[in-house]
């Protein structure tokens, strides 16, 4: 059971770290812009919170993994490893994509400072491209967990 719980912890922990770092990066850039142009708050808000989604994906997978773990009366090593493996895609894809998304958002925020009309076209959309890979990680984690049958 320990290895399965470790997987759940990693999913929440790594994706959460990635989101925290990503939001930190984007947030610093946004506060710099807002210190001069507070009226841009609405345009920048989405770009600051976008890297936060990975943390939620990790949390959801960790939550589902724990539900799966406790649905077994006796969890053998093969199922424990399967649960552990199911948590890895969201853990790694979540952490790395959140950090890079934070950097992309920071660049988008700086562009919004100069070209506010490009906030969504480039700022948000480019960041959403990075999000795709976090979503793929989340989906794979989810699909693997759905294939694990409780005994």
């Amino acid at each position: 059971m320990g290895i399965a719980l470790l997987g759940a912890a990693l999913a929440a922990f790594m994706a959460g770290i990635g989101s925290a770092v990503g939001i930190g990066i984007a947030g610093r850039s946004a506060t710099g812009v807002l210190s001069e142009k507070p009226e841009r708050y609405g345009q920048l808000f989405l770009q600051v919170v976008l890297p936060g989604t990975q943390g939620f994906y990790g949390f959801v997978i960790a939550f589902l993994a724990m539900g799966k773990i406790y649905s077994f009366t006796t969890l053998d090593i093969s199922n424990a490893l399967a649960i552990f493996a199911s948590c890895l895609p969201v853990a790694f894809a979540g952490m790395l994509s959140a950090i890079h998304q934070g950097k992309t958002c920071a660049a988008g925020i700086l562009m919004t400072a100069k070209r506010p009309e490009m906030a969504v076209k480039a700022g948000v959309l480019y960041a959403a491209m990075v999000e795709v890979y976090a979503v793929l990680g989340f989906l794979i984690s989810l699909l693997i967990q759905m294939k694990i049958e409780a005994a």
Partner: peptide, 17 residues
């Protein structure tokens, strides 16, 4: 990039305008 300068760079980009 040096990410310690996130705030400062954001402020400067506004001032550049």
């Amino acid at each position: 990039d040096d990410w310690r300068y996130g705030f400062a760079t954001g402020k400067i980009r506004c001032l550049e305008t």
